[in-house]
């Protein structure tokens, strides 16, 4: 019964495969962006543009921002659902946040940034609860509910701004602290990345160590059987959507600050698809019940490093989408045909 042996490799094969891919992409980028004027090959690699402080800082900030909402999407996908409204919510939360800071919208009072953050997060919990209620309790299809969100939230943000960009530099109150919080650094690490590490820790605990995670994985695989075991499936499923929008809101704060003004018609466009791509590449199944935090993080990282490679090496940036598509397709194909088994077999024989 060799199939039933659960070795480290078998259990974490998806993560291992992704790490290998990540390593190759990074290595490729390092070699081709190396400093040709450095003395010695090793030195030239160390001085490569990929490993430059600026690039790593940029990369970690990106990972922080994309990673936070990808983890949220991961939870929803594990529950067997999907959230298509992430990108539009990114625009809506950013817009609302800036209006709260400036008070320049008739219906939104200006306030101190700390209150503004709290209001945005509360707002996101309300939106997530609405999604969760419609999907888990009223039993509408997640695809449709969040498709309405995809259209509606961006439209709402565009209406609020009369379809122009909105900035925050005429904020009503002092925003020095906000700058530190969203754009500062700690030990040389960007704030977004630190937030991401904290969020990852919390989600790791929730998904892999807590009762909630076990229930979520169970209901993703077989909701009925979970219900027959006494699991409150409506509550757990609803919670996944709340978590997803809350994490989107956290990420939206960083994104809004990072782009310094929000243009609702393009802000966060297609982010839901990047999140889905990262989660699926990281081993989540759209059928639900499958996925790990490490996988989602690795999946998101691979996508970002690919993008970074295209930028650094001056490949045609339009073509980068094709590369991304091929990597995702390849990843899913490897999984579908269990190609690692062939590798394992050839090793033993």
């Amino acid at each position: 019964m060799e199939i039933q042996k659960s070795s480290f490799f078998n259990r974490y094969r998806k993560e291992v495969c992704l790490a290998v891919i990540l390593f190759f992409v990074a290595f490729w980028t390092i070699i081709f962006s190396r400093n040709t004027e450095a003395s010695g090959f090793l030195q030239s690699l160390i001085e490569s543009r990929f490993l430059s402080l600026r690039n790593l800082e940029n990369l970690s900030r990106q990972l922080g921002m994309y990673g936070i909402f990808s983890l949220g999407m991961g939870l929803v996908i594990i529950s067997g659902g999907i959230d298509l409204s992430v990108g539009s919510l990114m625009a809506l939360f950013g817009t609302v946040f800036f209006f709260l800071l400036t008070g320049s919208h008739a219906w939104i009072p200006g306030m101190h940034w700390s209150f503004a953050i709290i209001v945005v997060l509360l707002f996101s919990v309300a939106v997530g609860s609405l999604h969760g209620w419609l999907i888990a309790k009223v039993r509408l299809q997640a695809f449709i509910v969040t498709l309405c969100g995809l259209l509606g939230y961006r439209g709402l943000a565009q209406t609020m701004t009369h379809d122009t960009a909105i900035g925050y530099y005429d904020a009503k109150y002092d925003i020095g602290g906000l700058e530190h919080l969203l754009n500062g650094e700690l030990l040389g690490l960007p704030a977004a990345f630190i937030a991401f590490v904290l969020v990852s820790g919390v989600i790791f605990y929730l998904l892999h160590l807590s009762v909630f995670g076990r229930y979520l994985l169970a209901l993703g695989r077989n909701e009925q059987a979970a219900r027959y075991s006494g699991v409150n499936t409506v509550f757990i499923m609803g919670l996944a959507y709340v978590a997803c929008t809350l994490l989107t809101a956290i990420s939206a704060l960083f994104f809004a600050r990072y782009s310094s003004d929000v243009t609702p018609s393009i802000h966060g466009n297609f982010f839901e698809l990047y999140a889905i791509a990262g989660a699926v590449l990281g081993g989540c199944s759209l059928r639900g019940g499958e996925g790990t935090v490490v996988g989602i993080i690795l999946g998101t990282t691979v996508l970002l490093v690919l993008q970074n490679m295209v930028n650094l090496l001056g490949y045609d940036s339009s073509f980068s989408k094709v590369i991304t598509a091929l990597v995702i397709l390849g990843g899913v194909l490897v999984d579908r045909f269990e190609i690692w088994k062939l590798l394992a077999r050839s090793k033993t024989s």
Binding site: Y205, L209, S210, V211, R214, A218, N222, S229, G289
Partner: peptide, 24 residues
């Protein structure tokens, strides 16, 4: 839940007995 292990199936209905607050 067919895709889950024997252990996870056996304790799914009684997880509160195997958890401290929310930690399993």
């Amino acid at each position: 839940i067919l895709g889950m292990s024997i252990r996870e199936n056996m304790t799914l209905n009684s997880l509160d007995r195997f958890s401290n607050r929310s930690k399993i």
